[in-house]
Write a protein that binds this DNA or RNA. Sequence first.
DNA 1: GGCTTCACG
DNA 2: ACGTACGTGAAGCCT
Length: 882
Amino acid sequence: MDKLVLIDGNSIAFRAFYALPLLTNQQGTYTNAAYGFTMMLMKVLEEEKPTHVLVAFDAGRVTFRHSDYEEYKGKRDKTPSELSEQFPLIKKILDTMGIRHHELDGYEADDIIGTMACQGDQQKMKTTIVTGDKDLLQLVTEYVTVLMTKKGVSDAQRYDIAEIDQRYGLTPKQIIDLKGLMGDSSDNIPGVPGVGEKTALKLLHEYGSVEEVLAHIDKLPGKKLKERVAEHQEQAKMSKQLATILCETPLDFDLSDLEYHSFDSAKVAPLFKQLEFKTLLQRISSADEELPVSTQAKDLTIHHITEENFAKWDSLFDEDQLSLFVEMNHPNYHRAEVLALALSSEENHLYIPISVAQKWEAFKNWLADPKKEKCAYDGKGAHVALRRYGLLATGISFDVMLASYLINPSESGHELSDIVTRKLDASLPADEDVYGKGAKRRQLEGEELAVHLTRKTEAMVKLQSILEEELENTGLSSLFFQVELPVSHVLAEMEWQGVKVDKEGLQELGKELSSRLKELTSNIFDLAGTEFNINSPKQLGEILFDRLGLPVLKKTKTGYSTSADVLEKLAPQHEIVEEILHYRQVSKLISTYVEGLMKERSEDDGKIHTRFQQAIAATGRLSSTDPNLQNIPIRMEEGRRIRKVFIPSQENWLLLAADYSQIELRVLAHLSGDENLIEAFHSNMDIHTKTAMDVFDVEADDVTPEMRRHAKAVNFGIVYGISDYGLSQNLNITRKEAGEFIERYLESYPGVRKYMDDIVKKAKQDGYVTTMLDRRRYLPDINSPNFNRRSFAERTAMNTPIQGSAADIIKKAMVEMKSALDEAHLSAVMLLQVHDELIFEAPEEELEKLTEVVRRVMEDAVELTVPLRVDVDAGKTWYDAK
DNA sequence: GGCTTCACG
DNA sequence: ACGTACGTGAAGCCT
């Protein structure tokens, strides 16, 4: 069966351009539109399997429509050059793939598509039109459907006659009338002023067409509407005409010229490679080859180590450097089973089952020798996992995962296979592909496991030198070797220690909260007059807004918003709202904290061992998972009580918390050199009060709590990369008022204004920003023509040096802490990091000395133009260390 | 698996 | 006119 696909080239390229960041390849060619376009094209070819394909483009800027109506498309902005220069590229891709494309002077892509669609329809050929333009819906027939891109280009919705009827209650042809009435601002088609989609649809449901509407002007509802339609009759008719797509464009080709078979990947691959379309390249090559054979796997000789033969490999450990990978059956290395190890030098690749490793003395000596350098992938995970098998790994002098992260912390994947794809001219099967995921997960064994593993270490050997060089070239070596790698060793120790949790205390708290929740639930059901699932935002919305008739203040994509900020505003209107807010709080405490923590508590030692993720946050911060110990409640008293179950691991020990006071604003004072801000910190003032004094122009004694609260929000806003909108949302004030606050702030702190302007300018020039310790974050959207993308990148440019430098500082303090504690002969141990705070446990008698050491190390971690201040508190539980 | 909500700095 | 505060992780619902 023949099948025709017609692609609206301009529309898809536009969509792709605005949906994707402004990518370039190494030659500096912009590729985002071409990339998005090609993604879409490949998807359509795969899914539709067409026998005939045509891509139509607009030609020039003047069409026959202009001779009818001069202002046609008049308001449209000029196509940005970053996009227009990609059209030749797209055509080249099409030529290489053997796909026909056409444009015709004086006509639009729409008309070419319309003409071919009519032909397809006449020949009863299944035809799919791919576009982002609703206009083309008018071409839908029994045989012709439209595939409309939704957001971005990846997602699409198919429209047939039934779908258009369901969506608009119109036939395809009536789409033209719709546009005739409502117009289209992007094409500058006027329509009838004051008539939007809603009114237009209402009129068409009643009368059916523009002509019929005009014939019944006196019967139209509303005086205003009557006047408007009467006044713009001609304009409506003309608009309809402009919106009508031609089916008789004079074309010098016909359907049979559009035949498409399949593309030749040998021709396409080099082009994709040049354009750096890596995902696409992988897709076309993997479809090509029967087996995913990597260039390396073919001639890789694997030495299987056994208890019988390991002795002859003892001399391997004379090598200066070996790569080591520890394979586990689970990502949580605190409880995963270690399956095997792989070890690679340049020449030799060893596969070592864990049981063999445990018996091989030469290996264990090498592993424990800090002078024997090891290149690891996630050395922290490897260290912790091996330690559970009685194997001590030290001397990890390189970490492929951390290096990749520092080189580009925004990159979404730092799996070894991702890194190989990015940095080597090769590929490695992803763990997920080898093992499968979810229910399809399987265990690997024997030769298959050996191959998978040794290919990893083989790749790591190659990666190490490449990454080392790249770190050096981008000024990241010192951050890597002095901070990031050492801090991974510190984190390994912290995670290994774990935090003791009071099981009975947690159970009791759980019981208490559960009975609270029960009361709240029955109260809510009483007030609602019915039972429902309070946890379902959908059901809750129906109760609040449909049944109880509360006003809808905010909507989400899928329905009513029931978020806390909305509910807080509704609270005065109905008793139930307060109860729901409380219910949410208690329910969160039970499921995330009581039950969540209980699940993660180890029965072996009664402790929780979180994992600090060191290669996730783009700013350089850590994150914490399984469980997240960086978001234990503190703001509300009810939640704060969760902290009472975190206790020291030994009798007569205490927990101690040391947190940086206002580290981000101090960093800002330092980076900006603003004299007023620097002075404020030197005089040790309450910074939010100081800001209130400046913004509201009052004396310290006249700052009200309300003023201080507003000033505090402004300070947060400054750190986040301020916008009047964001501040207005936060403070629940108008945008104008928020804008005035910001202006007053920037007048008071001119150095901050200059810093913010300069950092954005610098980011636009360099394409990245850096932190105090030279951590880098690239901002590909900083010059984007898309306002939202660009604005977001600008705020990131302002925020990252601040948040990132604070992250640098505490990491440096953590690295120095270990030796400081040793030198002071303290047995205290560091357990947790919460962004600007470190948590320790220690014997009571060490309290005084420990406080002094911790404060000194943290405050002296770096020297700023303002002092760093650290507050320290200790207590029997984390709750009491406040 | 996406969306919504909410916990933290 | 557009429509965002910065950075995370986890849970529950629903398709």
